[in-house]
């Protein structure tokens, strides 16, 4: 995989999230999903509309990762969380000490970088 080739949909999503304009795809039934999608993964509806991700969400589950893959070895330990934004959930790293993050914590999404590779990733800030 050549490094300068983008992943259509995914990289566009990160660009938007970094600009404070993050969106998800909402189908006519109200199900949320993340790009790239041509059909709603819940119900198959093909009428998908870009809808703003709410400014904050709540932590559904979280874990402090101590043993990382080579791509994040210099980042460890770090907190990974699945965050609920209503119609959609996002996975990312919470930029906070692990003892300050718990299920139910309120966070805001952003885009940060891996300390190991400099690659972009979804991050969250505590609110």
């Amino acid at each position: 995989m050549s490094e300068d080739v983008r992943d259509a949909g995914y990289d566009d999503f990160l660009d938007a999230l970094a600009a404070g304009e993050g969106y998800y795809l909402e189908c006519s039934e109200g199900h949320g999903s993340l790009p790239p999608r041509l059909a709603c993964p819940q119900c198959g509806d093909r009428d998908l509309v870009e809808t703003p991700v709410p400014e904050t969400g709540t932590v559904d589950s979280c874990s402090t990762i101590h043993v990382a893959t080579p791509s994040f070895v210099d980042d460890a330990p770090y907190v990974v969380a699945v965050v609920d934004f209503g119609a959609v959930r996002l996975t990312g790293q919470v930029r906070a000490d692990s003892e300050d993050v718990e299920i139910g914590s309120e966070v805001a999404p952003d885009v940060g970088e891996s300390a190991t590779t400099g690659e972009r990733l979804v991050t969250f800030e505590l609110r």
């Binding site: 589950s61 990762i65 893959t69 080579p70 990312g92 990733l121 979804v122």
Partner: peptide, 30 residues
């Protein structure tokens, strides 16, 4: 660890630093 992680969603899990034990840790915490 990296090889096992390919069983997860590359775009939305692995690129966020999710590992295979990390995914099960999220399930355990929940």
């Amino acid at each position: 660890t990296e090889a096992l992680a390919i069983a997860a969603d590359d775009l939305y899990e692995v690129r966020a630093g999710m590992t295979f034990p990390g995914a099960y840790a999220l399930m355990a915490a929940a």
